[in-house]
Design a protein around this nucleic acid. Structure first.
Lengths: 340, 340
DNA sequence: CTGAAAGCGCTTACAG
DNA sequence: CTGAAAGCGCTTACAG
């Protein structure tokens, strides 16, 4: 099939190509009647502007880039990213933007992708996930002046716009709930060290431990995978002073932790309480369902996309705080065991 | 920062823009020495060809489209798609192709996206997931002559290329294993009705029931979500002649089924054996780990992407059979209970 | 309000 | 082997 162009429309409407462009883009320069006629013809023949031609003259690609830096198997099981992408998509498609996705092996590859996208003019801006402490991607994006929206913070985002949530507050909410249930030996299985939000949570956990005098509150670093989360749990539960409650930095590790407790013959929540961070469907899939710190991740993605489009449109690169996570108690948490 | 163009390279090399293009694209028409010099300069200044300009003259966008037709929450928890995408990505990025992703609400929206992408020349080809019986997307893609690779089949793919696996054979492998363990009352919680592979599996299950004389082998239709999978399980296990083994059409429903069994006080596998289809990390996350019909989904995506690129390059739109799923026995299956 | 024309940065026949 | 030029399909100043 031959694709229609503005030349076809111009011929049928008896006007110039320029007039067609003005009419279709809502620019002044054509009369209302002419505009109407042109739009009608465009709809009738199913016209869609060639995105390459548009990008080449307008210098805007109408695409946004997102890089994911996780191995295939891990990406699949972690609901966070797909939920985020769904939300991002909702906003982008409503504004006729495309999402260009690239899975990369490491931060260096990610920087290379940013440079290539910039050079190719492939995308108008990028979303940056998994912000690290002193993230090396930040200065590169600043230097390229590629519009960017960092999903993470606060801090370490340089001059880039960002969207963040107060993880420290959420952590306090979860731990204080466990303390209220009588738990004193509370452990945390943390996410990947080096990620900013992991560090923020670890810091908040340590501060809280000191404030509440929970001498044994310890963070075991992990990597978000079920394997590592299970292993960390096994180690924790094998200690003579085993914790009566464990807080996990994601849902995947919490589910793996539940399986380890069952494997070791411990009842949840009678012997061990479990709290997951990220309240995906995964938490309601298991028995008992997991108490979780949750928030609306698709909405977070939508918000981030909207802000990125604003930056692309020339708006200021501000920082915004999104809604905090809140605790949803379910069957995996209960009073601390008597003899503990 | 100013983006370098072939004009910049041409000036520095003292040649024409055409020569630069030939040199960089490996076309004949420049001497080896000139080519070397041009490539060196391009690397030195970090040149990347403007993708829009390239697409506009070459009529190829170097992007491939993928649509996902599932709600945000469901997409997040189903590992299949992210694993597929990872595999697709591996092949595409190795060949400098971008992946354009769009989440859609229904098949009509999906068709509209295909038409728009075609009109915009946004993508050179598309990957088609979730093939249905008499899929309405197929004739549209045929008519548009948009290169496509259907992930599914066999059959119902018209003149489009496709990649498929023999789900009937995999189903037979799983059910015969359960029968060998002594199970006679075997149920299946099926995927979304209307999807071709669901129908193929249902047909194979019915045929096998007749062949083996398993009078009570019944398929309960479901929708791949944990909620529905759990509900179907609850109904099955509440019947007086409850099954001693259940086969689930995906991993998510199988995990939900395990939780329901635990909730109802049934031991797995002593009272109930469970088999999952799709062997993601999810199956090893729970206790007991789930026996599963698995195959390498990232490799499947890689294969599909490679085939699509071959079609885009002008190759024939053939059908290919990929490696079948095979059963990995784990703790969720065992001998049928004595009193059954 | 409208038309003719330049230009975005490439690719690719077409001459030399 | 190399250069000059047309063309891809838009957008956007610039004249009328």
């Amino acid at each position: 099939m031959k694709r229609p162009t503005i030349a076809d429309i111009a011929r049928r409407a008896g006007v110039s190509k320029g007039a067609v462009s003005y009419a279709l883009n809502g620019q002044p320069g054509v009369s209302a009647a002419t505009r109407q006629r042109i739009i009608a013809i465009a709809e009738e023949i199913g016209f869609n502007p060639n995105s390459a031609a548009r990008a080449l003259s307008g210098a805007t690609s109408n695409a946004v880039g997102l890089t994911l830096c996780r191995p295939a198997r891990t990406l699949g099981i972690e609901p966070f990213f797909m939920e985020l992408i769904s939300g991002v998509e909702a906003e982008l498609s409503a504004r006729s933007y495309a999402l260009t996705l690239q899975v990369v092996a490491d931060p260096d590859a990610e920087i290379a992708v940013f440079r290539r996208w910039w050079g190719e003019r492939r995308v108008d801006g990028v979303l940056v996930c998994d912000l690290r402490v002193d993230d090396r991607r930040v200065p590169v994006l600043e230097q390229l002046q590629l519009p960017a929206m960092v999903i993470g913070g606060p801090g370490h985002t340089g001059a880039l716009a960002n969207l963040w949530v107060d993880d420290a507050a959420a952590l306090v909410e979860a731990v204080e709930y466990l303390v209220a249930l009588g738990h004193r030996r509370i452990a945390r299985v943390g996410g990947l060290p080096g990620l900013l939000h992991t560090e923020i949570r670890t810091r908040a956990f340590t501060d809280l431990r000191d404030r509440l005098g929970l001498s044994q509150a310890v963070t075991v670093p992990s990597d978000y995978t079920g394997e590592e989360g299970g292993r960390a749990t096994r180690r924790l539960l094998s200690s003579p002073d085993r914790p009566t409650a464990i807080l996990y930095d994601n849902d995947v590790m919490a589910v793996a932790g539940l399986a380890v407790a069952q494997e070791m013959g411990l009842a949840v929540p009678a012997d061990l309480s479990i709290v997951a961070w990220d309240d995906s469907a995964l938490c309601r899939l298991v028995h008992p369902a997991l108490t979780a710190l949750g928030r609306d991740i698709p909405a977070y993605g939508t918000h981030a996309a909207r802000r990125l489009l604003a930056v692309i449109a020339g708006g200021p690169a501000d920082g915004f705080q999104d809604q905090n996570a809140h605790l949803t108690p379910r069957g995996s948490t209960g009073p601390a065991p008597r003899d503990s």
